[in-house]
Design a protein around this nucleic acid. Structure first.
Lengths: 219, 219
DNA sequence: CTATTTTTGTTGCAAATGCAACAGTGTTAT
DNA sequence: ATAACACTGTTGCATTTGCAACAAAAATAG
């Protein structure tokens, strides 16, 4: 079974164009910094982030705002999907990069349309996959951030990457600066810790290539 | 619109029992510490956590394990929903409390059964709601844990609770010990910080009743 | 190729944090 | 009623961390 990253995965070109019509789909572009107003205006639409990055924010009464969710390529969003018991209009989707977004009717996703398109099951499956994979990713990062020290955070993240790669060696997916952001720690403090770990021989670092050397397990 | 916490919300009793048959549903009980083996054996089943708590863990080759997800009441899980590009059998759902779990066929959820039950849309809608609400919750905690200091973490969490309650006063949903766990900080350090904040007058604490006093916004 | 920007690597220092340990208070079980 | 247990509140101390600041290397743009 393959990994689902695209809501239209395993749906043919032909079915897609058929569906676009069926669902009254429309693609729109937004520039970095702009607010996707369709979000609050038409709660019946859901959006698929085809390209770019965005955030889902909640606006507090005092003007402060909380980031509720980070949205990346392939993510699905829409009021129909995030409704909680707070007021409509207090939430916004804001583009942090130039975005390309495909909107379509939420009702179409959850029930079959008149024409009884056969790919509906696949579409629902893909949606569920994308959302549950997101939960796993978020939980993964939560586990990392729950670690108390920088050293533990590094270890935790490294072992996830190692496991994902199936070996003790792997490539960092981003720069050390971004790594510090991802681990939510100070970059210089992280570098210092990394240096110590190298000296102690618990990791080997060469550019973005990392080799983890697990300490002997006590038992 | 109301908050969806139960996958069967807005589905009548009658439809439910009809569905149970339709979906070959079965409820099982697990005691704390036990592994839900159905998870890896029958990948076509999904589970609904009706009662209790569980975790989704990945078992590494060296015996170590990573918690991928925390599962709480109402959560949906199943291999069909969490499959990534790692081996089957390396993941387990382990009960951390006594659990009551309802299993049913995943295929039934995503496509209409022979009898064309009308509540399918509702079921799919509920599933999507539950999963997206989970993403919001996880992101919320991520934002909190991304804060650098204990003070910022407290503020961040308190303002989320305040916003949720619609006022500056609210009740902590759990003990201070649990709060420290939730914020992933040392309890005594948190108490110390809380004391400082009380002295400075930025919060009022009386048992589990918290009043946040926002500092004047600079502009 | 050169200028500019981003990333990496370092350090001193003050402040924040975790740890350990203990006492007091409240809660629950027997 | 009393014991057992969980939660709260506190403190000293060693360690870790964040911050600020700077230099060098690497990547990118013009």
């Amino acid at each position: 079974m393959e990994q689902v990253t695209n809501i239209f995965q395993n749906i043919t070109e032909q079915e897609c164009s058929q569906m676009m019509h069926c669902f009254q789909a429309a693609e729109k572009r937004y520039s970095a910094g702009s607010v996707i107003s369709t979000y609050s205006r038409d709660s019946q639409k859901i959006g698929i982030l085809r390209e770019g990055q965005a955030i889902l924010v909640r606006i507090h009464s005092d003007g402060r705002q909380t980031i509720l969710e980070d949205l990346h390529q392939g993510d699905i969003f829409g009021e129909a999907l995030t409704f909680e018991n707070f007021d409509i209009g207090t939430m916004q989707v804001v583009c942090t990069e130039n975005c390309r977004i495909l909107f379509f009717d939420y009702a179409c996703l959850i029930r079959r349309c008149q024409k009884a398109c056969t790919f509906h099951s696949q579409l629902v499956h893909n949606s569920l996959q994308i959302m549950s994979r997101k939960a796993v990713q978020l939980s993964e990062r939560l586990e990392i951030l729950s670690q108390r020290s920088i050293r533990e955070k590094l270890f935790c993240y490294f072992s996830i990457l190692a496991a994902r790669n199936g070996r003790e060696t792997f490539q960092l997916p981003f720069s050390f600066s971004s790594l510090a952001d991802y681990l939510a720690v100070d970059r210089s403090a992280m570098m210092r810790e990394l240096k110590k770990m190298k000296e102690e021989g618990t990791v080997e670092v060469e550019k973005r290539r990392i080799v983890t050397i697990y300490p002997r397990q006590p038992f």
